Simulated assay, not measured.
Amino acid sequence: MMKPDWRWVAPRLASLYHRGLLVPFIGAGLSRPACPGWGGLITRLEAAAATGAGTGEDPLSLIRRANKTVLALRHRGQGALEKAVREALTTTPVTIPESATCLADIWWPLVITTNYDNLYPSSVSSRWKIRPLVLGRSPMHCFQVGRVLREPLAPALWAIQGYLDTPCDEHFDFQNQLASELVVGHEEYRRVTHREPHFRRAFAEIYRNRSLLFVGSGLQDQYLLDLFSEIREFYGPNGHLHFAFAPEGELDVDFLLREFQVAVVEYSVPSNNPTDHSNRHRHLRELKHAIDVAPSPSRWDYQVARPSRDSVACFSVEH
């Protein structure tokens, strides 16, 4: 299969955006370096749990280390895991990453996140002078996610793995409730997706009826791929392509396109500086430009001629 070219992808993303079909899905990469990535978070939690530093940075080793550490912290009593994760995310001074700023420069009615931090909603609040609604996995919040897809509401952030209002000082709604929904580790992810059918239904509606744009999300979490596979088994192939920005060589591009209809746009990362994702920032800025210059209907109306056998509805579009 041919790798998707950015010149082919950009106008399609802009078209999806203007049709209200594009939904960003952000992961830990969007919050780095202000917050640690998955491996760094596990290392900090191991220090907090005093379980000893684990070995191995491959996905399976990180899963084992996370499960062991989370179990130890939960055995310490209520609030121990939340406290450890909050401290692991806290940085001084707080500098919002450029990726979060670039994404927030575009008005998004809904963004899905696996992050626990408030860097992106703080970027939205600063850019648009409006406080985004932060939603979780409860039945009420999943219902509100459905409303966001159909009604012009305040911008919403759907935190599907819990949410901690840190490290930025600005505070958003539902932070206490969403802290109780915190899940860390593969086993907890798996239990949550099987235990909460209302969450699976809400996620399936978005996956089937919108195009997801993965930014800073490695698409390497097996529980997410399992969730995508379950949706495909029940509902069949997706009606829209999904898209992802990823460093060259990080993902199996052919597999994701063939099995999950995810078109991966790869960007180069300097070999001497693997933390430099400036090309991802460039793609986000180019996406904003493509959205700004793309033709879009500003109003649709119609006029019906006087009743007669030959009357024809006349439609007009204003640009």
Rank of each mutant, 00 (worst) to 15 (best):
W8R: 06
L13R: 09
S15R: 13
H18Y: 11
L21Y: 13
V23K: 04
L30N: 08
L30D: 11
G39I: 02
T43Q: 05
R44E: 15
L45K: 01
E46R: 07
G54Q: 03
T55Y: 01
G56Y: 14
R64T: 08
R64M: 07
L71V: 10
L71C: 08
L71P: 04
R74P: 05
A84P: 12
R86M: 13
R86E: 15
A88G: 12
T92N: 03
T101Y: 03
N115L: 00
P121N: 10
S122F: 14
S125G: 06
I130H: 05
I130M: 03
V134A: 07
H141I: 01
F143W: 04
I160F: 05
I160G: 11
Q161R: 12
Y163F: 14
Y163H: 14
L164E: 12
D169M: 02
F172H: 10
D173A: 02
Q175K: 01
Q175V: 02
S180Y: 02
L182A: 12
V183P: 09
H186E: 06
Y189E: 03
E196R: 12
F199P: 04
R200V: 05
I206L: 14
Y207R: 04
L212W: 05
L213I: 01
S217R: 02
G218V: 05
L224V: 14
F228W: 05
F228H: 11
E233P: 09
P237A: 10
H240V: 11
F255N: 13
L257S: 15
V264F: 00
E266A: 00
Y267E: 01
S271G: 07
N273G: 04
S278K: 01
S278Q: 13
N279F: 01
R280T: 04
H281W: 07
D292I: 02
A294M: 12
P295D: 11
S296R: 10
P297A: 15
P297W: 15
R299S: 13
W300Y: 08
D301W: 13
A305C: 12
A305Q: 15
S311L: 09
A313W: 07
